Amino acid sequence: EAKQAFKELLKEKRVPSNASWEQAMKMIINDPRYSALAKLSEKKQAFNAY
């Protein structure tokens, strides 16, 4: 599932759970899995759940 892949990406890149969305994006934007969720709102939702 795309959300699961996105959460795994956050874990693998060691994005701190208290990081802001902007900080997290800088760490993950170059990974192909960043595109797993098409909409930015879906990415933010998955990030907030993380």
Results as ranks from 00 to 15, higher is better:
E1W: 02
E1P: 06
A2R: 10
K3A: 11
K3P: 05
K3I: 15
K3L: 14
K3E: 14
Q4M: 11
Q4K: 14
Q4W: 01
Q4Y: 00
A5E: 12
A5L: 13
A5H: 10
A5I: 14
A5Q: 14
A5D: 09
A5R: 12
A5P: 03
A5G: 11
A5N: 13
A5W: 00
F6K: 08
F6M: 01
F6L: 03
K7Q: 14
K7H: 14
E8S: 07
E8V: 00
E8R: 07
E8Q: 11
L9Q: 02
L9P: 02
L9N: 02
L9A: 09
L9D: 06
L10H: 00
L10W: 00
L10I: 08
K11G: 10
K11Q: 15
K11N: 11
K11W: 13
K11P: 00
K11M: 14
E12D: 11
E12R: 02
E12T: 07
E12G: 04
E12A: 05
E12S: 09
K13A: 13
K13I: 00
K13Q: 08
K13D: 09
K13N: 01
R14K: 14
R14S: 09
R14I: 02
V15Q: 04
V15F: 00
V15W: 01
V15L: 04
V15T: 00
V15E: 01
V15N: 01
V15P: 05
V15R: 01
V15I: 09
V15M: 04
V15S: 00
P16F: 00
P16D: 07
S17M: 14
S17F: 15
S17H: 13
S17D: 11
S17Y: 14
S17N: 11
S17Q: 14
S17P: 15
S17L: 15
S17C: 14
N18I: 03
N18P: 01
N18M: 05
A19F: 08
A19R: 00
A19P: 03
A19T: 07
A19N: 02
S20F: 00
S20I: 01
S20Y: 01
W21Y: 10
W21A: 04
W21T: 07
W21F: 15
W21C: 07
W21G: 07
W21N: 07
W21D: 09
E22A: 09
E22C: 06
E22V: 07
E22F: 05
E22W: 04
Q23T: 09
Q23Y: 06
Q23R: 08
Q23I: 08
A24Y: 10
A24D: 05
M25T: 11
M25Y: 07
M25E: 15
M25F: 04
K26W: 01
K26V: 10
M27P: 06
M27S: 09
M27W: 03
M27K: 05
I28G: 05
I28R: 05
I28Y: 02
I28S: 08
I29Y: 13
I29E: 15
I29Q: 15
I29T: 13
N30P: 10
N30A: 12
N30C: 05
N30M: 12
N30D: 13
N30T: 12
N30I: 00
D31I: 00
D31K: 00
D31T: 03
D31E: 05
D31H: 08
D31N: 01
D31M: 04
D31P: 05
D31F: 00
P32L: 01
P32K: 09
P32H: 07
P32A: 09
Y34W: 10
Y34L: 00
Y34N: 03
Y34C: 07
Y34K: 07
Y34R: 06
Y34T: 06
S35T: 11
S35C: 09
A36Q: 11
A36S: 13
A36T: 10
A36L: 13
A36W: 06
L37F: 06
L37M: 07
L37V: 13
A38Y: 06
A38F: 00
A38D: 15
A38E: 15
A38R: 12
A38H: 13
A38W: 03
K39T: 15
K39S: 15
K39H: 06
K39P: 12
K39C: 09
K39Q: 08
K39Y: 13
L40P: 08
L40M: 14
L40T: 12
L40C: 05
L40K: 11
S41I: 01
S41M: 02
S41E: 15
S41C: 08
S41Y: 03
E42V: 03
E42W: 03
E42A: 06
E42R: 02
K43V: 06
K43M: 11
K43Q: 07
K44D: 08
K44M: 10
K44P: 03
K44I: 11
K44Q: 13
K44H: 13
K44N: 12
Q45H: 11
Q45G: 09
Q45L: 10
Q45K: 10
Q45W: 02
Q45P: 03
Q45I: 14
A46V: 15
F47R: 03
F47Y: 07
F47H: 08
F47V: 03
F47W: 12
N48Y: 11
A49W: 01
A49T: 12
A49H: 04
A49F: 02
A49S: 14
A49G: 06
